[in-house]
Design a protein around this nucleic acid. Structure first.
Lengths: 205, 205
DNA sequence: TGCATGTTCTATAGATCTATAGAATTCCGC
DNA sequence: GCGGAATTCTATAGATCTATAGAACATGCA
């Protein structure tokens, strides 16, 4: 019945199925979507979906993986490049927000629905997630070593803050296509580097 | 069958039901939770839940409202107080994160599940949400006028950034009870005011 | 064309889930 | 303790939903 090795055509069709699942999961959430919804989006009947996925959970797993894959890949390229700290930070924010702007519903699904995966299926995702965070931490360490950042910066906190900030704006960007993304990118990096306070005064909180 | 005016006892029991719904929705999501789950958490049988809610959607609506209510209320007090800008900012971050630390599952539900409410039920929530954001914007305007903030700050962006940052850390705090919340509060406000960059250098991105 | 394999369809079992109706029980003022 | 109101229970209708089995159709190679 089902192709084991995976012909070229099969892989191509399966990718489309993953995209459909991503679109539906992003809109209605994992539990709010039915396999019928996904199949309809793809233009086939409900039962036929099981030619591509062993279960609904497998579909979710594939969507999450698809969503985070090239996102992590881009970060790897940025971290490995020989740019200065500030360029890397800007590139990170740009990459992160671009993923949302490109209607990457899969990334939204990764963020919002991955917790519904059984523990076994989450291992790979956790790996990729912490790889991303660690590389971002590495960028901040580079920034401290080069003297651009204050020595007191907590790199773990900083990395989480960047991710949180970008995810928050990513959500807003997805819902409002009229937003000027470059404006947001510029303001985010400016916030991360300089904060909102007037620079003349020295402040300690 | 059902109490119309709402005796004291009824209102009290209903609050408990809302709390149970909040706990279950927060863990499994709206569509992932069944009315049986909620009833079990509350210690009654599935059908009995409809003594307190006309539908599952009504329960979600009440949870969301409950989650955002005192959160907005606290912001109102902060905004109306006569503190200086920096104190208000710290108070805002503290209030926001405290809501999460107090296991306010309802706030998480408001953030993650409110989109599944029908449009009619969302009106009040939207009002409260934008009230919160506007008051936060007002605080930033105060900070600009008093000269603490740079004149170039975009108050709308700033307010969204604070909310996004606090939500991101709120999520982390909820999952990891060992985190030192005061450390996070201090680092968040420091980031918002000063950024991560060494202050001696003047940076423009 | 004919055969084998790949892809989709129909139909359905079996397990949910929401919401309702009415019976049973508990609570509380008298 | 009695009687009415408040609260909870049981049972179920009716509408999902996931996953499977096997038939039907399509495709491509000999």
């Amino acid at each position: 019945m089902k192709q084991e090795s995976g012909s070229h055509r099969y892989q191509e069709q399966r990718r489309q199925a993953i995209r459909s699942a991503a679109a539906v999961f992003a809109e209605k959430g994992f539990h709010g979507s039915s396999t019928r919804d996904i199949a309809e989006h793809l233009g086939i009947k409900q039962g036929s979906l099981y030619y591509y996925f062993k279960s609904k959970e497998e579909a979710l797993g594939e969507v999450c993986l698809f969503g985070i894959e090239d996102y992590v890949h881009r970060m790897q390229e940025i971290a490995a490049s020989d740019q200065a700290f500030e360029a890397k930070l800007t590139a990170t924010v740009t990459s992160h927000l671009s993923c949302y702007r490109e209607r990457n519903e899969a990334l939204k699904v990764y963020n919002d629905e991955r917790l519904y995966l059984p523990a076994g299926r989450r291992i790979k995702l956790k790996q990729l997630g912490s790889q991303y965070r660690q590389q971002l931490e590495g960028i901040f360490e580079q920034g401290m070593e080069s003297g651009v950042l204050r020595p007191s910066v907590d790199c773990h906190f900083a990395a989480q803050a960047v991710i949180g900030l970008c995810n928050a704006w990513g959500d807003i960007i997805v819902r409002d296509p009229d937003i000027n993304m470059f404006d947001i990118i510029q303001k985010c990096t400016d916030l991360l580097l300089n904060g909102f306070a007037e620079r003349r005064k020295v402040r300690r909180t």
